[in-house]
Design a protein around this nucleic acid. Structure first.
Lengths: 156, 156
DNA sequence: CCAGTGAGTAGGTTTTCTGGACCCACCATA
DNA sequence: TATGGTGGGTCCAGAAAACCTACTCACTGG
């Protein structure tokens, strides 16, 4: 947790500080798939019960999940994604797309997500302003704080 | 690293097994920004030097970075993203977008990325087939292996 | 000769993960 | 009433990873 003295200020780092611990994004995956209960999460995520409990607390604290009772007597809770949690789905989609492309010979994808346009989802990141797919060469980074330079492609 | 017995098979998990360790994606961020040298990475990423060395080895082994000499005598290396590394940029973009939206009051973004269409990049994940932005409600998951069910929204 | 830089490696301490056992409340059934 | 099963956790000791400091090596510049 302790950041070494002044690394580059960056929303990527800040986001990873919240959801970058092991299992956090897998918990979110399951919750987004509709698996909301502790024991289900233990099985599907593969995390020790201990760690899962800690991750759930953290995700709830961060406003990514909400904890809701689905039974009094005995008290039982389920976890649901908030809007902030659903807003992380693009991260899950892009991670999955990369794994499907680079970690497998195509054809044995363990999970396919269907888009309601009728096709299998192939997520693509586009620029909201112009609508075209984003390519590395088209980007120019502008660090806001002083002293943080970039060089080469994607440079400022 | 040791997976508990049979968690859900999933490309998200497999991708995170490669780039999910602390600092890995920040290293990739820096390399994509054009900062290629060890000491620069130490400063900008904020990782301890030995951890950084381990991450670089791992990313090179995974085919995400390549190590290239830029000076013999003394031997000095720099790290460049491969195509597989560049293909991870969408993950970085979506992480940054989430942090900008949810972790800050808009206006103090620490880094802005400009798209060469002339606007600030606001990344948006779309379905490559139909071109529309992806919303949670439009997705249906189909686990391939048996026994892995999903429930509720995004269910199969 | 001395200081400084770039790219690491080495060692010892602290933190985190891990696997397993354990706990409590409840339900089913016999 | 005992007996077992489930859901949702907590606790603990050992293993692994991260952290920090220091050190090395090969130069370069003055």
């Amino acid at each position: 947790m302790a950041a070494r003295k002044d690394p580059r200020p960056c929303s990527i780092a800040d986001t990873l500080a919240v959801v970058g611990e092991k299992y956090s994004l897998l918990v979110l995956r399951e919750v987004c798939l509709g698996n909301r209960r502790f024991d289900q999460l233990v099985r599907n995520v593969g995390a020790p019960r201990d760690i899962l409990a800690a991750r759930l607390r953290r995700l709830v604290d961060a406003g990514i999940l909400t904890k809701r009772p689905y039974s009094e007597r005995p008290q039982r809770f389920e976890y649901l994604p908030t809007q902030a949690g659903l807003d992380l789905e693009p991260v899950l989609m892009t991670l999955m797309a990369w794994g499907d492309r680079h970690l497998r010979d195509s054809g044995d994808r363990p999970m396919v997500i269907e888009h309601n346009c009728g096709h299998d989802l192939l997520p693509q990141v586009t620029c909201a302003a112009c609508g075209t797919p984003v390519r590395h060469e088209d980007l120019t980074a502008h660090p806001h704080a002083e002293g943080w330079t970039v060089a080469g492609p994607t440079a400022a």
